[in-house]
């Protein structure tokens, strides 16, 4: 009985979401192996090996895997003697887990929110509106885990062993030709402590100013589908049923109506603030704190607050120098 956790990384570091999956894996109470796939992985493997809860790290490090295609990754993972294969319920894990499941002839389970017993899970459907239990009869469990539903695992001082694996032979079925990555300066949207989300109620010329505000708070930038469809912010910012699922400590929604498809992606945030001038907007019934006002005036007030704080700091510094 061995649990394999597929580790997501960007070629430099492991993604925080994989730390949440390791915590979920530890609830299976079986040995846990982290699976790291790519090229030139030494530093990533060393980082992964410190994760609390692991028993070993298996590494497939090969130039052919610099672009780790689903076809090749699935073939390798399906060849390992694992009883559970877990990955995060995001574009990374959702791309891989069902294909691995097909090769193993098992019915995969998506977006697990809690593990009640071996092979017994809770998941959401209908845009998060309905929860259900799922029991699987399969000998091997192929599961994607909603990262925000589990804590992040800690890093230890002592590393577990790292084992190299040989690549598998499969003719090249797909290859990557280009990649556009979001700026890595801002925090990962899925695991950020604070998210500021821009909705259609934000006039486009205000977007750069909210971005600046988000930066000061080290907040990740989110968007509704309407804003992404309009080409105002990139797709990776979309929060919702069909975008990213987030659960930050603080979620600030600027001009967001609160459609069910949007709420599905942020309903588990600890504190939600809605800035929306329409008293009947669903978001204003849903959010913990509601500022029923125009985004323009709120943003100006917020900036003014910062400006005066900064002035104070500057004048204090001046006094000190004097």
């Amino acid at each position: 009985m061995t649990v394999g956790v597929l580790i997501e990384h960007d070629g430099k570091h492991m993604k925080t979401s994989s730390r949440h999956v390791i915590t979920a894996a530890s609830e299976c109470q079986k040995p846990i192996i982290a699976l790291v796939i790519g090229y030139q992985l030494d530093s990533i493997a060393a980082e992964v090996a410190l994760c609390d809860g692991l028993d070993a790290v298996w590494v497939l490090d090969h130039p052919d895997y610099e672009y780790a295609s689903a076809e090749r990754v699935a073939l390798w993972v399906a060849s390992l003697a694992l009883t559970h294969v877990l990955a995060s319920a995001n574009a990374f894990g959702k791309n891989l887990i069902p294909r691995i499941a097909a090769l193993l002839n098992v019915s995969p389970i998506d977006g697990v929110l809690s593990i009640l017993a071996d092979k017994h899970y809770v998941r959401a459907m209908y845009a998060g509106h309905i929860l259900c239990d799922v029991i699987s009869d399969d000998l091997i469990q192929c599961v994607t885990i909603t990262p925000t539903a589990f804590k992040s695992c800690a890093s230890l001082k002592q590393a577990v062993s790292i084992e190299s694996h040989a690549s598998v032979d499969l003719p090249l079925l797909s290859k990557r030709v280009s990649m556009h990555q979001a700026d890595s300066e801002s925090p990962e949207l899925a695991t950020a402590a604070c998210v500021m989300t821009i909705g259609r109620g934000v006039p486009p010329e205000l977007i750069p100013r909210i971005k600046r505000l988000a930066k000061r708070y080290k907040a990740a930038l989110g968007a509704t589908r309407a804003v992404v469809d309009a080409g105002l912010l990139p797709n990776e910012c979309q929060v919702g049923q069909t975008g990213q699922v987030v659960a930050p400590d603080l979620y600030i929604a600027w001009g967001v109506s609160g459609a069910v498809q949007h709420l599905a992606g942020m309903k588990h945030s600890k504190q939600i603030v809605s800035i929306n001038k329409n008293p009947d907007a669903p978001m204003n019934a849903f959010a913990d704190f509601v500022l029923e006002a125009d985004v323009v005036s709120v943003l100006s007030a917020w900036e003014a607050r910062f400006a005066s704080l900064e002035e104070k700091c500057v004048s204090q510094e001046l006094e000190y120098e004097l």
């Binding site: 960007d10 995001n90 990557r176 030709v177 990649m179 556009h180 899925a190 990139p234 990776e236 990213q244």
Partner: peptide, 8 residues
Amino acid sequence: IDGGLETI
């Protein structure tokens, strides 16, 4: 994809 776009 989560971090942006990828062309294959």
